[in-house]
Design a protein around this nucleic acid. Structure first.
Lengths: 126, 126
DNA sequence: CTGTATCCATAGTGATACTG
DNA sequence: CAGTATCACTATGGATACAG
């Protein structure tokens, strides 16, 4: 695992924790600031660079590029370049990327439930 | 949400992304370097500070304390102090913390499957 | 035993400007 | 349109020493 030296986001511990279990392995692939957002946008449609940028209001070109490259290297999305003028590049989920959907769902359910619980205990105490 | 100002790890975007969905909410609670490890250790037993430290070989006192405090604030673990000499403190999962188990499982399955897939395409290409 | 206080390195991210 | 190149900031996380 020598690739991805510099210019990469979210490198930390990829080896340190990598051997722990699939969870850390997974989370290391998904830890980037925008990765989740991108993945979810692509869940429903294939999108172009500019379309992604439009649906992710605060992202910069640089970050979008970086995170897309990493997701691609990690086999979660595919990148298709069309030899046209003006250039067109389309991003889509790979099978692996799609396979994450049920897990997201489960995490989302937990997250919402826990958020509610947290808010309730908060108001209880006040 | 004004609490947790300084000395806190993994603060970034807790509000920026918090409104997106439960996934980000969840991931923001779990993004710390050691949180997952701690949570998993506690899945099977209640543990004391020193026991946690022993099972997490490379963690420092500081980091263990910080992450435990955040997990506690986020309602994932409970902290019980026994008024003894020498002091004793026990950490355990709350119901919310335990509720994460199935999701971990799912992520772990995906992680292992994806790792295998990634390694196969790697050897394919060589 | 269970922490806290300080200082510090760096990964991750962002702003801005430029390009094929 | 789809990026790259630079520079800079900040939080995260680590080392070390000290404390109730």
């Amino acid at each position: 695992m020598a690739a991805r030296k510099e210019t990469s986001t979210n490198n930390r511990n990829r080896e340190v924790l990598g051997d722990f279990c699939g969870i850390n392995y997974a989370l290391n692939l998904l830890g980037g600031r925008w990765k989740l957002l991108i993945l979810r946008k692509l869940e429903s449609h294939t999108l172009r660079f500019s379309e992604l940028k439009r649906t992710l209001p605060h992202i910069t070109d640089r970050m979008l590029t970086l995170q897309l490259r990493e997701l691609e290297q990690d086999g979660l999305i595919s990148r298709t370049v069309f030899a046209e003028v003006p250039p067109r590049v389309e991003y889509a989920l790979t099978a692996s990327g799609q396979a994450l959907a049920p897990t997201w769902q489960s995490l989302e359910v937990w997250g919402n439930a826990h958020r509610q619980a947290a808010e309730m205990t908060l108001t209880d105490k006040q």
